Amino acid sequence: MFYIYILYSPSSDKYYIGYTEDLTKRLFMHNNPINNKYTSKHLPWLMKKSFEVGNDKTLALKLERKIKSMKSRNFIEKLLNPDQGNKLFQDLIKKIISAC
Rank of each mutant, 00 (worst) to 15 (best):
R26L: 06
G54S: 09
T20A: 04
K62Q: 14
S69H: 06
H42W: 07
H42D: 08
N55R: 13
F28N: 09
N32G: 10
L61I: 07
M29E: 14
T39C: 12
H42Q: 12
I34D: 01
K49E: 11
K68T: 01
Y19N: 08
K57Y: 06
F51H: 02
F28I: 03
K66T: 08
K62G: 01
D22Y: 12
E64H: 07
S50G: 01
N32M: 14
S40Q: 06
K57C: 04
V53Q: 04
Y38T: 09
T24F: 11
K37I: 10
S69P: 00
T24E: 15
G18A: 14
R26S: 04
L43R: 13
K48T: 04
K25I: 07
L46H: 09
N35M: 15
G54P: 01
T58F: 12
K41N: 04
Y38A: 13
L61M: 09
L59C: 03
V53Y: 07
K57N: 03
P33K: 10
L63Y: 07
P33A: 12
E21M: 11
H30K: 13
N35D: 14
N36R: 12
H42C: 14
V53D: 02
R65C: 05
K48W: 05
S40I: 09
K62S: 10
T39V: 13
K66L: 07
H30W: 11
N31G: 02
D22E: 15
L43D: 03
A60S: 05
G18P: 03
K25L: 15
M29F: 07
N36L: 13
K66E: 12
I67S: 00
